[in-house]
Design a protein around this nucleic acid. Structure first.
Length: 558
RNA sequence: GCGCCCGUAGCUCAGCGGAUUAGAGCGUCUGGCUUCGGACCAGAAGGCCGGGGGUUCGAAUCCCUCCGGGCGUACCA
């Protein structure tokens, strides 16, 4: 509907003023109309005429050309043109609430979550897991072939720390002893080892040396393809524990499964090889015995890609990762979601890739988010400062749920956390308030779930949905209809910007519009039951559809 | 020091070039409702949109500057 109207307005501009404009209709306040355009203001400057005069002339022509679809065209304020749809046209819009598949035929690679094996997940991982899932759903909905990628560090210093502590705990390189640890306790056991390794690294010089050596052994193990030595057995077993645990967690979170887990070790050779190759061609340079990319000419920092030990840093691995994605998927767009502390880091990596593989570099979008904090703070893990873990967030939501006395279901707990993360624009810090998130009143996931369940309950009581031929809406019916009809636009906006919060804003407004309608209109048993039942059904479907884009369940009862 | 991001009601946030009154939620205050699941609805109070300058017919929205905060700034990721 919208794009048809935009085309019509553009055509009139061309007819009357020979002006080629990209017309974008906006949604004005309801009192003004259904759509608005400011083309007259834009034209005023070019033509040197009064905007209102231009608007009036355009309006006359629009009334003529759009007589079938538009009930009214008005000029307002400094020169806005407002269009009001015919009710019958609005009704038709409700039958086609699918957003256009603008990404059909495209391939989108979306990388998010990115937890490191051997390390506990923190709140930031939970955030990208959930929000990344939403973004993937959005582009998938728009028709893109969507590849969900999970990248994680199975090599690197943190692994060295953990491996060192594991071996110490086992009393030597004794892989068989790992069998004694019960399956359910393995993630926590590994977590404890990581903390121990981390402390030792910081506090104990001898341990630090040993950990660095252990780290190196992990790299060598990969180079040699070693799966048999006791050291290797421990490594591969514990790595598998981590991946098993991730999958369990994702399952619990009810996010779409990842298409591919890419461990750092897998992309390291390609990254190393590429950096060395491009070192020869002068893209990278040697400095203080390390291989660096000189970012200064690009207004960026200089960063190390291969360190003086000859080991690849994360930069080189990321080069390997980018090229792996490009080689395997030939993506139209590659989206990466990480914490914002990596923003400039990523710019350096991408700038370097631009020098020898411009296509994948240009097609990469890096989205970053801030720190996830708990409202009121948490008892901090003594050692590491202010890091909140993923489990702490989930636990806080459950506790807040229990405190309400309502015994919210797991679906509702998840809705609370997901919606709380989703409702803010991606970028800034997130202050997670468990109480607010679980509340049934206010802008929360559970509120929308409840709104949906209530609508379903009405429909159960109503006569079967009848086919309606509406000539005229009553005012509050029309408001609801109009709001429902905005759904595809909200989805498109969220998709274009890769910002799921637009879905939240829309759904919440939709629920408010509905509640207002519901307050003053009887549905079941009214003489307009057919019309209203149809509206309630569309409303409930739209809510469920929108929540689904956020990965939030919409049960019929709760 | 330099670079990037942020600063909107008491709190958490939308809005990011347009409409007399800058919007929500929570909190506060008034009303309504034994309701098709009132956990809602109607309304009030509360903001020189960090300060100052500029561009524009029009700026919370763009540019400059200052103040305040976060992050980054070579071998962590």
């Amino acid at each position: 509907m919208r794009s048809e109207l935009e085309a019509a307005v553009a055509a009139v501009c061309k007819d009357l003023f020979a002006a080629e404009l990209a017309v974008e209709l906006t949604r004005p306040n309801e009192q003004f109309g259904d759509y608005a355009t400011n083309v007259a203001l834009q034209l005023a400057g070019k033509l040197g005429q009064k905007p209102r005069d231009i608007a009036e002339r355009l309006a006359v022509k629009l009334r003529e050309n759009l007589a079938g679809t538009v009930a009214g065209v008005s000029v307002a304020g400094p020169g806005f043109i407002n269009l009001t749809l015919r009710d019958a046209v609005l009704v038709r819009a409700l039958d086609g609430l699918e957003a256009p598949k603008r990404l059909a035929g495209k391939t989108y690679v979306v990388e998010y979550s990115d937890p490191n094996p051997f390390k506990p997940l923190h709140a930031g991982h939970l955030y990208t897991t959930l929000v990344g899932d939403m973004i993937a759903r959005l582009v998938e909905r728009a028709g893109a072939k969507t590849v969900r990628i999970n990248y994680g560090g199975d090599v690197g210093l943190h692994v060295g720390k953990c491996m060192w502590a594991i071996i110490r705990q086992l009393g030597g390189e004794l892989p068989d002893k790992l069998d004694d640890i019960p399956t359910g306790e393995r993630p926590a056991w590994l977590g404890t080892r990581y903390v121990e390794g981390n402390s030792a690294y910081e506090d104990d010089g001898a341990a630090k040396t040993a950990i660095v050596a252990t780290n190196k052994r992990v790299y060598q193990l990969h180079e040699a393809g070693d799966h048999d030595s006791p050291f290797a057995q421990i490594y591969w077993t514990c790595r598998q524990w981590s991946y098993d645990y991730f999958k369990t967690l994702y399952n619990q979170l009810q996010v779409a499964p990842f298409d591919r887990f890419i461990p750092e070790s897998e992309v390291t050779p390609l990254g190393m090889g590429t950096v060395q190759e491009q070192l020869a061609r002068g893209v990278y340079t040697k400095s203080d015995n390390a291989v660096v990319f000189n970012g200064e000419p690009h207004g960026l920092h200089t960063r190390v890609f291969i360190n003086t030990e000859g080991l690849p840093t994360y930069e080189a691995k990321d080069v390997g990762l980018s090229l792996t994605k490009w080689r395997d998927y030939h993506f139209d767009r590659s989206i990466i979601i990480t914490a914002n502390e990596q923003e400039q880091y990523m710019q350096v990596v991408i700038a370097s890739i631009t020098q020898f593989a411009p296509e994948p570099a240009e097609r990469t979008t890096h989205l970053t988010h801030g720190v996830v904090k708990l409202q009121g703070g948490v008892k901090m893990s003594s050692r590491k400062g202010n890091v909140v873990t993923a489990l702490q967030i989930l636990e806080a939501a459950r506790e807040a749920g229990a405190e309400t006395g309502r015994h919210p279901s797991e679906e509702t707990i998840l809705a609370a956390v997901k919606y709380a993360f989703a409702k803010n624009r991606i970028g800034g810090d997130i202050i997670y308030d468990p109480k607010e998130s679980i509340a049934l009143e206010g802008n929360s996931g559970p509120y929308l779930q409840y709104a949906h369940a209530r609508a379903r309950s009405i429909l159960k009581k109503a006569a079967a949905e009848q086919h309606h031929t509406i000539e005229k809406f009553e005012a509050s019916e029309r408001s609801l209809a109009r709001k429902i009809s905005e759904f595809p636009e909200a989805v498109e906006k969220a998709t274009n910007e890769l910002m799921p919060h637009h879905i939240c804003t829309y759904l919440y407004e939709l629920a408010q519009t509905f509640n207002s309608f519901y307050e003053r209109n009887r549905v079941v048993g009214s003489d307009r039951e057919a019309v209203r039942t149809a509206l309630v059904a569309r409303y409930a479907d739209t809510l469920r559809d929108g929540l689904q884009l956020l990965g939030i369940a919409a049960p019929d009862t709760m």
